[in-house]
Design a protein around this nucleic acid. Structure first.
Lengths: 243, 243
DNA sequence: AGACTTTTAAATGTCAGACAAATAAAAATT
DNA sequence: AATTTTTATTTGTCTGACATTTAAAAGTCT
C-alpha cells in the first residue's frame, strides 16, 4: 500500500484510494483491523489529520467502521445489503433530480426492471408478501390520505412485489429505481378517480401473483406503466396552459 | 442547517448529514458554493478539522467538489451518470464478495435485469452498438486470450447490449449488476469448447438485435444464462472431488 | 488609455502538538 | 475469588500555524 508523494495535492484522497484498493482486492478482509491512525501517518508519511480525512472518506462509503478505546481502531466493514440500499437510494435520487431526467425515461426504466422481477415473484412470493401488498392497497384506499402518503404506500407496495422474487441482489438493484421515482411521482396530483384506477391495478397484480400467473402480472404492470405515464402527461399539459 | 450538540460523538458525521440533507432536499442547489471552512466551523461551533472531515465524507460520495484559491471553496457537485456508475460498481462488487452471495443468485439477478433491457434494445439499438458487440465477439474468438480478458470482453458485450436500450437510467442501474459479476465469472475456467458455445450465443443475440427480434433475444439470453450456470456448477463439482 | 506585471487577500491543503473521552486489559484491593 | 482501581491505547476534537493555489486588485510601463 503506497502513495505517490510527487503527485498533486489531496493526499487524503490518495490514501483513501490505496486503502480502498486493498479492501476491494481482498488484501484487507472483513473485520480486519487497520493500523492505528498514528501508525498510518508513519507509514504514509503524512500527519494524523490527513489520515483521518482519508478514513472518513472510507467511512462515508461504509467501507470501514471505527471504534474508540484500547482495542479500538478502524475495521474493514462487511457491507450489508441495508447499507448498500441506503447508498443506492441517495445516489439514484440525486442522479434523477440533478440531471433533469425525463419522467418517461425514469418510468420506463423502473417498470422494465420491475417486470424483470415479476416472473420470479409469481413463482416465489410468500403469503407474507401478499399480505403486505394487500395491506398497502387498503391503506391507499383510505379517503384522507395525502398525495405524499399515497406515493409512499405505492413505493412500499412495489418493494414488496420486488422482494417477492426472493433474490436479495435483485431487491438491492431495484431499490434505487423504485425509491428514486418517489420525488418524481410526488409531482403528480392524484385525483380520487386516478387513485381508484391505480388501486384496481394493484389488486389485479396481487391477485395474479397469488394465482402465480406471471403473464397476467406482466400485462397489468404494462397497463400500470401506461397509466402512470398518462397521468404525468396530463400534469405537464395542465402546467403548460393553466386555467 | 443545525446539529444536535448534545448527541454522542462523531460531530463530523452529523455535519455531513446536515449538509447532505440540504443537498438532497434542494436547499442547496447544483454549483452553489458552501460557506468556507472557517465560516462553517463558526456556524456549527466546531473546529476546522472537524468541518473538513465532514466535507471529505461528502466528497467521497461525489456530493461536493472543492477548489483552492481566492474564489475557491466547496461546491455542490452535479452527480454525473459516470460518477454514479463508478460508485455503483464498487458497492455492488463489494456487496457480492463480502456477503458470500451464491453464483446462482447473482447470475439470476443479472440475467433477469438484462432481459428487461432486451425488448427496448431490439427496438432502439444503433448500428454503432451492434458494431461494438461484433467487435467484442471477434475479440472473444482470439486464441491466445486469457480467461480474465475473455470475461472483460464479455462484460463489454453485455454493456453494449444494455446501452442499446437507450435509457441512461437503465444503463446506470445495470452497470452494477453486470460489472459486479465479473469477479465471480473469473472463477470459471473457460475451455475452448465453452468459449465457442458462448460466442455462438453472443452472435445469435447480436443477429436477433439486428433483426429487431425481441423474442429471439430473450430466448437466447435464457439459453446463455442456463449455460453460464451449468459452467459454474461444473467448476463447483470439480472442486468437490478433484483428480 | 491600455496591456502587462506584481502584489495581495482569501481559500483550501497540510502539519504539529495537545487534551478529552472511551474502552479493555492489567493491577490492586477487599 | 470477586470487585474496584489504575493504566495504556486509541479515536475524537481543538488550537494555531504555515504552505499552496488562485483570482482579483494594485501598480507599472509603453
Amino acid at each position: 500500500m503506497k502513495i505517490d508523494p510527487q503527485k498533486p495535492a489531496d493526499l487524503s484522497a490518495q490514501i483513501a484510494q490505496a486503502i480502498r484498493d486493498a479492501i476491494v482486492s481482498g488484501a484487507l478482509i472483513v473485520d480486519e483491523r487497520l493500523p492505528s491512525e498514528a501508525e498510518l501517518s508513519d507509514q504514509f508519511q503524512v500527519s494524523r489529520p490527513t489520515v483521518r480525512e482519508a478514513l472518513k472518506r472510507l467511512a462515508a462509503q461504509s467501507l470501514i467502521r471505527t471504534q474508540r478505546g484500547a482495542t479500538g481502531g478502524a475495521f474493514v466493514n462487511r457491507l450489508s445489503f441495508e447499507d448498500a440500499y441506503a447508498q443506492q437510494i441517495t445516489t439514484s435520487t440525486l442522479l434523477l433530480s440533478m440531471n433533469a431526467v425525463r419522467f418517461d425515461t425514469a418510468c420506463e426504466a423502473r417498470y422494465a426492471l420491475e417486470r424483470a422481477c415479476a416472473p420470479l415473484s409469481a413463482q416465489r412470493r410468500t403469503a407474507d408478501q401478499l399480505a403486505t401488498m394487500r395491506a398497502e392497497i387498503f391503506r391507499q384506499a383510505q379517503p384522507g390520505l395525502t398525495d405524499e402518503a399515497f406515493c409512499a404506500s405505492d413505493v412500499a407496495f412495489h418493494r414488496a412485489l420486488v422482494d417477492g422474487a426472493g433474490n436479495p441482489v435483485l431487491s438491492y438493484q431495484l431499490a434505487g429505481a423504485v425509491e428514486a421515482m418517489q420525488p418524481l411521482m410526488n409531482m403528480i396530483t392524484f385525483t380520487a378517480r386516478s387513485r381508484e384506477e391505480i388501486i384496481a391495478l394493484h389488486s389485479q397484480i396481487t391477485d395474479a401473483l397469488e394465482g402465480r400467473d406471471a403473464a397476467k402480472v406482466d400485462l397489468t404492470l404494462v397497463e400500470l406503466e401506461n397509466y402512470t405515464r398518462k397521468l404525468a402527461q396530463d400534469v405537464a399539459q395542465q402546467r403548460r396552459k393553466p386555467a
